[in-house]
Design a binder for these strands. Structure first.
Lengths: 222, 222
DNA sequence: TGTACATCAGTGAACGCGCGTTCACTGATGTAC
DNA sequence: TGTACATCAGTGAACGCGCGTTCACTGATGTAC
């Protein structure tokens, strides 16, 4: 399987950061490009958006774009990185929160699921774009985000695992992990790509949250 | 959100079948085109494959291709339909199988999950292509397969529901359905797009099957 | 059973469009002395 | 505090490549009488 995307000259696995802007002016341009793209991703896919369009929306120009980014794809890399950092930061904050000290596993799982739902909804456009890209190619670099989410989320998992004594499943570590895989898969499908689901049987986010929580706890044998 | 795919002239929601071949010769050509495409999809995405390449692999020509299909996309429509029919057929056979007469819900769920895993693995390439396409656009037509799978699978669900007395969940219908959504999401992610998952923690298909079964039954409260 | 004509099937070079990328140029900001 | 020069930033028309699609043509199969 080969990539459909332009190969980066600097070789493999090095998501290229934008050439660092050295003046305030161009830093602002970069910011405008980023936010314009996120806005455009809100209801189109990355492939459907042209560089010219991004430039125009950002009140900038195609040339300026290429002054920062090696190619179109490098922009998505950059968004990926920025976004992953935000996620890691939020997860860290979250897992350090002291309210978990005395909490039961039920409460913890409930909150983690709500947190994830919030995150998916907040970054829907970008997450869609990154997910699709990861799946359009197998340049391993592009599976980064999903992998990163799947790997960072372990911090949340560790939180759950610290309640290990409440878990009856014979291999709690594996079950906690696999259960998370199931939760993340389900949320990705339902929240990022809802078109695939019949609308006749609408399932609200909060029902989904409740049922995922229920399923997860039942699986762990709490 | 607009489609990135060519719009069909004949209007909306009408997946165009190929112009029916009237001679044996062209029927064979059509068959070669179909099988060449499925072969190519085995390790590339639909967008990465050119019409010229399909024609060449099928020992045919670009012109012949367009004699059958209105455009490139119509081919994927066609594969979608053919494939969905196969699935429906197999599910029907499956659910009529008499061995379910006396079976317990545990056994039934176990077999259904294995059936689904087999199906996903057997048609991996095509299913990937169809899933990605459904997600690259929101022409509702393109979400057909996923929706069709999500809708045909209810036959399997009905099978499970016929064991309703063994289910403790307060709303068994909803739980059976939602649990299936979780199973399908997880299988799609892990089997169709395995790149996203770290290889350090390998999970075999049969472990996955066991754990999904376990999780599902626990969720239903069997 | 043969001939004439119509339709079907096949071919691949040429076309054309969309879009990513380049490039020659103008203007703004920073730096050296 | 001013002048000269270097670098950074911005612009958008023009380029070019890839690939889906068309089209003029050849050959094969079917049909009418």
């Amino acid at each position: 399987m080969r990539s459909g995307f332009a190969k980066r000259s600097q070789g493999v696995n090095t998501p290229s950061a934008p050439k660092p802007p050295s003046q305030q002016r161009s830093r602002e341009t970069l910011a405008r490009i980023v936010s314009a793209t996120e806005r455009l991703l809100h209801d189109r896919n990355f492939e459907e958006i042209t560089v010219a369009e991004i430039a125009k929306t950002a009140h900038s120009s195609v040339g300026s774009f290429y002054a920062r980014f090696e190619d179109k794809d490098a922009l998505l890399d950059y968004l990926d990185i920025v976004h992953a950092e935000k996620l890691i930061e939020r997860i860290t904050e979250y897992s350090e929160d002291e309210r978990w000290q005395g909490a039961h596993i039920e409460e913890l799982v409930r909150e983690v699921i709500r947190f994830l739902i919030g995150f998916f909804k907040e970054h829907k456009g970008l997450l869609r774009a990154l997910t699709v890209r990861a799946r359009l190619t197998d340049e391993p670099r592009f599976a980064e985000v999903t992998r990163r989410v799947n790997n960072r989320v372990p911090e949340l998992i560790r939180l759950v695992l610290s309640r290990r004594s409440e878990i009856a499943h014979p291999s709690p570590d594996q079950a906690v992990y696999l259960g998370f895989v199931m939760i993340l898969s389900t949320l990705r499908e339902r929240l990022l790509f809802p078109e695939a689901y019949p609308t006749q049987l609408p399932i609200s986010d909060s029902l989904l949250a409740d049922e995922l929580q229920h399923a997860y706890l039942a699986y762990l044998g709490v």
